[in-house]
Amino acid sequence: MRLSYPADIKIIQVPCTGRVDILHLLNAIEDGADGVYVAGCLEGECHYIKGNIKAKKKVEYVKKTLAEVGIEPERVQMFNLSSAQGARFAEIANEMVDKIKELGPTPIKKNHAA
């Protein structure tokens, strides 16, 4: 399968989404990322039992916290798919990029650069 996904995305691999930390997500936004999303296994199919559920809760926390300071919570998302769903991976990447384009650049970046 030679599926293409947008070059806008930088992939950071972790052994399990349970390893994803609230700080990873916040620091990405703080450092100027327009959006960040977590791609975890399908719910109920975590190899470490509940890693993806924990990640989901952390993503929800970050969305809520960002909303409190006026950042669009949609800039942070969680998706679930299996490692066999290559096409779905590309589809999600496009979906996320479209969403971010719709929202526009992060309000953080320009100040950060200044």
């Binding site: 700080l23 960002l66 950042i71 309000p107 953080i108 100040n111 200044a114």
Partner: peptide, 21 residues
């Protein structure tokens, strides 16, 4: 430590958004 780091990060995000780092 974790909560201190999170608070620092979100506060920086909020202030950057205001253009008042």
């Amino acid at each position: 430590l974790k909560e201190v780091e999170i608070l620092a990060s979100i506060m920086k995000i909020a202030r950057k958004k205001q253009g008042n780092d």
